[in-house]
Design a protein around this nucleic acid. Structure first.
Lengths: 230, 230
DNA sequence: ACAATAGTGTCTTTTAGACAATATGAG
DNA sequence: CTCATATTGTCTAAAAGACACTATTGT
């Protein structure tokens, strides 16, 4: 392959990296792949790839494309997180990466281990030794997630369409890493008007719990003042 | 100048753009330059420039460098805002811009009109017709500023080292674009412990007001949980 | 009936909002 | 003493926090 593109100045590469969060067995996890080649061979890394300039894709589209490649799911919740561009973050050259975080409901399986990748869900606590600056990227994503869950409705992205309030509370507790009072939590959620109760119930071993859905109408109006990437 | 740098794929350019806010005559303003060449000749644009890959500068350093070029001030408050990369945002080619916002105290003069630039402070309300996607960038910056002023101490960046509480309230009112109750505002600010009163007073036409300073100690601890770009 | 989870009510504390009179210093 | 701005206090309303018992279903 010959080098066909010429520039008067050295150009940085632009990649999009993804922190795909999900909840597995009461743990907040994110998707990692194993690097099969240097640098950082054998270390775990965030999924990501080059922005495909020749396709004319936007950054958001690149993030959605990568997310689809890993999960086979379209139109996932993604949001730009931060752009990392320290000169030494990649030993091969100057690489600017625009990081996005993504939330998927429990139960999603990573796209099968394409030999080259070996994708796995990894618990967020106690990850070390990631490739590049990815440990830092994950930390920033986690901070953002913690910050945003308090005043947005993104938690719903981690649950199926119908869920119980106990399940919702679990999501909050897992992300915030603290226990919440059941009564206060329910009052808080209900007063927001973001959930609507259905007539269905989830039968477990004991008293069945009401199933709720995310109330799109009120959510949209509330999100209007929240989506400003703040 | 020959094109010396070759790549196997088309590369995007990476620029850093700045929204430099200040307050002038009770108006929130930001720095614009006039474009002297196409595209968008004659339109106003945000100051910015290419990331200098050969110098090995970080994104933050590039932002500080640009800010210095425009204001002659070092170590200004800057924070990464968002990365814009739509394929058609610059008609000359694929340009990814990492936007930073920056806050400077009142009274700073833009670096003199270097012919090529003609820098000016422009009120944030009623800006239209900016070059590229810069109107959108400014809107995002303004939303972020409004969001952050409520729960961080960034407002102090817009004031001199010593300021009166009335001046501080003015900053809040100008940014939020609403009036605030004087007593409630003062209670709110004082309860945060972010300001320390000095023994000096500012003599105006009438009763002199106490001068306050930003209280770095408490600020640092409070900032610790706020600087996570959330 | 019992085990296990779902669901609810009240008091207290804190924070935010509305509101107007007094204090001080320059001229 | 007058003008202009600085400064302060209280009542009310809303939100957050602490806390424990009853309800429902499967087994």
């Amino acid at each position: 392959m010959s080098k066909k593109y010429e520039y008067a100045f050295p150009m940085p590469s632009v990649t999009v990296d993804l922190i795909i969060f999900t909840i597995i067995k009461d743990q907040l996890c994110f998707l990692t792949i194993e690097r099969k080649h240097p640098p950082f061979r054998g270390h775990r890394a965030l999924p990501g790839g080059f922005l495909e300039v020749d396709r004319g894709e936007t950054l958001d589209e690149a993030a959605q494309r990568e997310a689809f490649e890993e999960t086979n799911l379209k139109d996932l919740f993604i949001e730009q997180l931060y752009t990392f561009g320290d000169p030494n973050r990649d030993p091969r050259g100057r690489v600017i990466t625009v990081a996005y975080y993504c939330l998927v409901p429990s139960g999603v399986k990573p796209v099968a281990g394409d030999d080259a990748k070996n994708a796995e869900w990894t618990p967020v606590y106690g990850v070390a030794d990631m490739a590049f600056d990815h440990s830092k990227v994950v930390q920033v994503a986690l901070d953002r997630l913690k910050g945003k869950i308090a005043y947005t409705n993104i938690a719903y992205q981690l649950l199926p369409k119908r869920f119980t309030l106990t399940e919702l509370q679990n999501v909050y507790e897992i992300i915030l890493n603290e226990t919440l009072d059941k009564r206060n939590f329910r009052r808080h959620i209900m007063s927001r008007g973001l959930v609507a109760s259905t007539k269905e119930r989830r039968g477990g071993a004991h008293r069945p719990a009401k199933l709720f859905t995310f109330n799109q109408k009120t959510a949209d109006s509330q999100l209007a003042c929240l989506t400003s990437t703040s």
